[in-house]
Write a protein that binds this DNA or RNA. Structure first.
Lengths: 195, 195
DNA sequence: AACTTGACATACTAATTAGTATGTTTACCT
DNA sequence: AGGTAAACATACTAATTAGTATGTCAAGTT
């Protein structure tokens, strides 16, 4: 039996993924769990702090974990990169997931202009992902596995953009195929980086 | 002196761009124009129809116009493509615009799971853009200007994704430089398509 | 055994929301 | 000149919202 706080976090994460932060009625979410507002406001002082906790404890760690293998691997960056792209495909493997889009992208569109706490956290997570990719690319260049004629910073931004944009376009088109095309293109693009 | 309906449309478009559809209080927006709810509900039956009108009359035409030149040009697709990418750079030329992100992407993240009317319209606009790009690429292949060894459909999705994703990442990073890096990469990528 | 504390439930509130019902004014039409 | 309709304004409402104040109960602590 998982503890109540964790369950509140997860259920509200799902609700945010579905309706956006502004669309979530946190008390209805916990009502569906069979508990009341009392529990909700016992664990979280307000709705925004609940949102922050979801970013800090769920979304942040999740996304950073994805690219960790890329940053840490000591060789075969090309292979690891392909694996990461594969893991993104897995991450969006059902039509339902495609229709909801990338939780990080969703929040990135919705919240930064409205709230500073969200803005900072989304900035940090995105920045860390970009650095992880950049580090991986640089290492691959140093190892002689990748060519030297591309800018790792620029390329890292490009990877992130293409993937997040792929989620977005696939969501608009309601088409998993669209997302897979973007991943396929990115794989092809990655081949071109090899020495 | 512009007519009231048009002004309501534009002001609410800006508010949606800033706060998202769910975050907009349409009566407050018109109050800032110096008019009242009466005018608002005189021209639009409800908030959602106001949103639909913004998509149909402002956002849709705007985005389709951007890629029209690409679809219609009879030669030098490479040049036109670079011009379109430049126009995207212009479109997001201030830091303020970067912080607000792409209006189309914003709505694409927020609305489709919540409302069918938005979903259909965002689907149509995105689909039309993709087709315009695809047609342009195909024509360039037929004209012998671009190589034949790439899939125009896939590549069209890739362009859209990278651009929209570029907006998203730049918004998260609050960095116009990030967006420009993505555009720069896309230009480089475009060079690789040439025969 | 009295006391405290954590983990909730219940009942309430003040503000905000989209939307409506009902004016009023102005211009135009006949 | 009388009537009509568009273009708004004013005043209201019902529902929903996040949040609070208070209560209860079981488990430990001293």
């Amino acid at each position: 039996m998982t503890d109540t706080r964790t369950e509140i976090l997860h259920k509200n994460y799902e609700a945010i993924h579905r309706n956006g932060f502004q669309g979530v009625r946190a008390d209805k979410v916990v009502a569906e769990m069979g508990i009341t507002k009392g529990a909700l406001y016992h664990y979280f002082p307000n709705k925004f702090d609940l949102g922050y906790a979801i970013l800090d404890e769920l979304l942040g760690p999740h996304y950073l974990k994805i690219w960790q293998s890329f940053e840490r691997a000591e060789k075969n960056f090309g292979v690891v990169l392909l694996e990461v792209l594969e893991s993104y495909r897995d991450f969006a493997k059902t039509d339902e997931e495609i229709k909801l889009g990338c939780p990080l992208t969703n929040l990135t569109q919705e919240m930064p202009p409205l709230d500073e706490g969200f803005r900072k956290r989304l900035h940090r997570i995105t920045h860390q992902m970009q650095l992880q990719i950049e580090t991986g690319l640089k290492n691959a260049q140093l190892a002689g596995e990748f060519k030297l004629d591309f800018n790792p910073t620029q390329t890292a931004f490009f990877y992130l953009s293409a993937i997040e944009g792929g989620f977005s376009v696939a969501k608009a088109m309601q088409s998993r195929a669209a997302f897979e095309m973007v991943i396929a293109q990115l794989k092809q693009f990655s081949e071109g980086l090899k020495a």
